[in-house]
């Protein structure tokens, strides 16, 4: 059941991205930015958790989940350590993802070359 919801919701989110690409011709950087913002806003209004409850990976794997973690981290840290949390919480919550992306990119840039299409 988790798989089905993950597939349907995840697919739907990605398809919305594709609709944006086709209709507005925006580049992948703008797509990613848009979806991160959607995640931040969903979390800010505390709408992300209810969706995540049943969509699981379907909403967490899309970059929306990254945005939601940023906002969730900031909000959680504000709750525990006050205003400073607004600055420390976001990156703390997403450090794993960012560090992994940077680390593996660096590693593989040493090994691989880009190939002509």
């Amino acid at each position: 059941m988790d798989f089905l919801w993950a597939f349907l919701i995840g697919g739907l989110v990605c398809m919305i991205g594709q609709i944006l690409i086709i209709t507005t011709k925006i580049t992948s950087a703008r797509i990613l930015v848009t979806f991160v913002l959607i995640g931040v806003v969903l979390q800010a209004f505390e709408l992300f958790e209810p969706i995540s409850q049943f969509a699981k990976a379907g909403i967490n794997v899309p970059i929306i989940g990254f945005g939601a973690s940023l906002a969730k981290g900031a909000m959680g840290a504000v709750k525990s350590i006050g205003l400073l949390g607004a600055f420390t919480g976001g990156l703390e919550a997403t450090a794993g993802g960012i560090a992994a992306a940077v680390g593996f990119a660096f590693l593989f840039s040493l090994i691989f070359k880009s190939k002509t299409k």
């Binding site: 697919g11 609709i19 794997v61 970059i63 929306i64 993802g97 593996f104």
Partner: peptide, 14 residues
């Protein structure tokens, strides 16, 4: 297209 850009894997690719 969007199917592999929007997931976190697209972020990694970028």
């Amino acid at each position: 297209g969007g199917g592999s850009i929007v997931p976190i894997t697209g972020f990694s690719n970028s």
